[in-house]
Amino acid sequence: MTNNAKTSFETIFEQFQSIVDNTIPEQYKPLLAHLNEQGLFYQQFIQSLNNKEADLSSFWALPNSWGDNGPAAEHTNDWFKLFFALNASSANSEPPSIDTAWSLFNQPTQQTVESLKALQRAFVDINQLHTELGQLALQRFEKLQQAVDGEPTEAQSCKHWLQAGEETFKKVTQTEPYLDAQKRLFEALKQLKTQQQAFATQLSQQLGLPSQQTIDDLKNALHQLRTEFAQYKEHTEATIHRFEQRLKKRH
């Protein structure tokens, strides 16, 4: 994707925002913004084909397929965002460096450092596989384009983009290296979470705040109470119903 194209598409996006902001009811805005973003993606793709750009592999970059943040953004970190969205209430679009993550911990343990390193290694491996995916998809796309009698149309090219992407994605994501990197990523995340919890427990003790265990106990008690109440209510209603049926029979 060229910088010129990006600027021009960003202008279109701004124009769209201004129309939407001024005249369209709130409930439609997110849907239209999403639609607009997808349209701009295809326009960029078509323009790059028109310009005969040699490397179109970024159009299969997976993070670009998640995007919700604008038409031409290079969402290189969105895959990572998914994993961090699991762990935090607000997702960070940048992969946290070890230094940044350290600041979350007062005195990072060796275990924490190891987990963060493992997380980064897995993330780098997955990103590498995603880059390869883009290149493989491009090769497949070129073959599909060449197989067409005459010049492929825009519609055919878009269809080939999809076919190349889905086929390659399926192939790459079912390979051992991908599954292994994914597994390592989740394991590292789990370890990190365990260490975060230990840290939070330590901190809550120091600050005199309720510990996670206390909160979990309360949640458990509330859960039990709700269940018992629902069971009691059901039992009562069933008993009343049985009495009503008996009374009806008698009369």
Partner: peptide, 14 residues
């Protein structure tokens, strides 16, 4: 890159 037949108008934008 294989040959490509561009369209005269931007259908999606319209």
């Amino acid at each position: 890159m294989p040959a490509f037949k561009p369209s005269n108008k931007n259908q999606w934008q319209d």
